[in-house]
Design a protein around this nucleic acid. Structure first.
Lengths: 189, 189, 189, 189
DNA sequence: TATGAATGAGCCTTCATTCAT
DNA sequence: AATGAATGAAGGCTCATTCAT
């Protein structure tokens, strides 16, 4: 926790935004949780809205990078799906609060154009994957947005369970879940 | 809209809570939208928190009832799944705002014990279904909480797309989605 | 002091703005001086800036009306001057703080276009008078803005003395001052 | 502008206080305008209030000295008046911001006893002049405070016009103004 | 000596809640 | 029972002031 002040503010904000939501989180809460004065926050972020957008974009980008990193474009759709699923798990592990924050705020009123674009880019990654999968007749012929919703929605809800301690994310369970979600999107012949 | 005042307040609150979120909705907003004086709301609800919890519980119960109603306990797991899926769609159609409100507020900071219990009961319905399905070797051997998360999470995310107009909920698409989600949870032999 | 709330707020604001200046006067100060809650001020004025502008315009208009009222256009320049001087004295008596507030804030940073226009109209009254006086060769041939400055500036400073109790505004002194100021602007042949 | 730091702070403060007013001028503004760190200001002035008072007194004293300097005690009242008027013009020219600052802050809330005394001393100069003039039956028999108000008030208002560019301070206009103000205070027989 | 990051008191403003009507 | 004017606690934010470097 003994990071520099900016990181400390970001970390505390993320946790509070995830736990209570942006609107129910006050600047004094963030300040005290980050161990800084309320005024200090304004040395790093113009205002609360900018803070919210910055954090949103920062973590969406980390998520996007996690998925994009070493993406096995040359391999089978199933392997690509495996990569995506593993990326989601890895991001969840490293940034347990971040994914939940992104989920609960991806259409929040305070998000600006840039944040939306940033989020679209993430979704676009998934879209490309599903489109190529549909082309190869490996993925169900549902709208890509729907396929993303199924994968992303299910994953987020699972992640919520892990967060609140209702689900133990051991390897075997995770691989079962991966199989379940693959079953959901793949074309059964 | 000429309901009695209480219902009018509940209806208006639901819409506003769904559209703007609980924290960003003010009592005067609700009052003016419900066509009553601000003070009147306090004749029916002790305070904003009670109002929020009441609405949450009310609609979760309606959802629960929709699923429980005419539940085909005697029929196949697949038929039971169909019933559940149809119930979700029906509830979505009838109470388009309600499901979104429940989704976005199911772990809101203002919810009290009773609200959480109420929500657990809804999830428990699904749990029972999945448990019996697993027993009969028709449903994947994943924790029921995980299966619920997959079904519920995916459905909610899809519903969000419909809400924002990104997805057209025609019959054929819906039946494809049902199939996809059944694929996700059923045991493939 | 038992006026309605709006008037009470206006009256208190005027006194405080005059005594401490707009920037050094806080909303809580006004509220407590007016005997209302801080929030109440915002039922009557959108914000502090609007409050400042409203008061400025309100009193400038009263001043303007005081001067315009029964203006003896048909009479001699000297009589017109007498009317103007008497109007200033009357306004000062009735609204002792107002003139000082106007003086100290007539180029304040918070004034909007409308306030400036309103003030220009007041100055224009004087300008017209001096212009007609110059035409008739009764008033010195100085720019009207300068003549206004001399009359208005001197009067304001005198009024300040009365306010702080350094000068007793009895009739004979006032008529001497009027004579002095008339001497300042009239053309001596 | 490469003065020592103290002078640089004083000069910058004067300009900002004159332009924006004491209350609307922040310490960081002064610091950046003076090219020093914000903390440095506190090496030279205990706090903002002390800074304000110091500057007020400093410039009032310069004004006083300008008037006192080479005062023609031996000459006629008219000549003395000319000296005073010329001093005011000279001070205005050299310290254009200072006179405006003094004018707009001469009864500011932050001024302490010493500042008021200092200002009184300036006024006292004028008082002595008018008293001796009245004794010699050259000046109107008005209270000296009133005569000062007329001279000083008119002059300040004129100076404001020059400042905002509404009046061109050429020699002929200035001598007309001097004549006008002399007419205001002198005894007409 | 000089700095500017950090602080927190206090500002303006909003809004849940009360209460006289 | 219903209202909405009034309230004041609390939020976001600014800025005079301090202090470690």
């Amino acid at each position: 926790m003994a990071l520099n002040k900016r990181d400390s503010i970001v970390a505390s904000s993320l946790v509070l935004f995830a736990e209570r939501g942006y609107d129910a989180t006050t600047i004094p809460m963030i300040a005290s949780s980050a161990g800084v004065g309320a005024g200090t926050i304004y040395r790093y972020f113009e205002n609360k809205e900018v803070l919210g957008n910055t954090i949103f974009q920062e973590y969406v980008k980390i998520f996007t990078n996690t998925v994009e990193n070493d993406f096995p474009y040359e391999q089978s759709i199933r392997n690509q799906f495996h990569h995506i699923f593993q990326s989601m798990i890895q991001f969840t592990k490293e940034q347990s609060q971040a994914l939940y924050f992104i989920r609960t705020h991806s259409s929040a009123h305070f998000l600006n154009e840039e944040s939306h674009t940033c989020f679209e880019e993430l979704l676009n990654l998934f879209k490309c994957f599903f489109d190529s999968g549909k082309e190869k007749k490996v993925i169900k012929n549902l709208p890509s947005t729907a396929l993303i919703a199924i994968l992303y929605g299910a994953f987020l809800e699972l992640q919520r369970l892990v967060r609140i301690g209702e689900l133990e994310p051991d390897t075997s369970m995770l691989s079962d879940v991966e199989e379940s979600m693959w079953d959901a999107v793949r074309l059964h012949m």
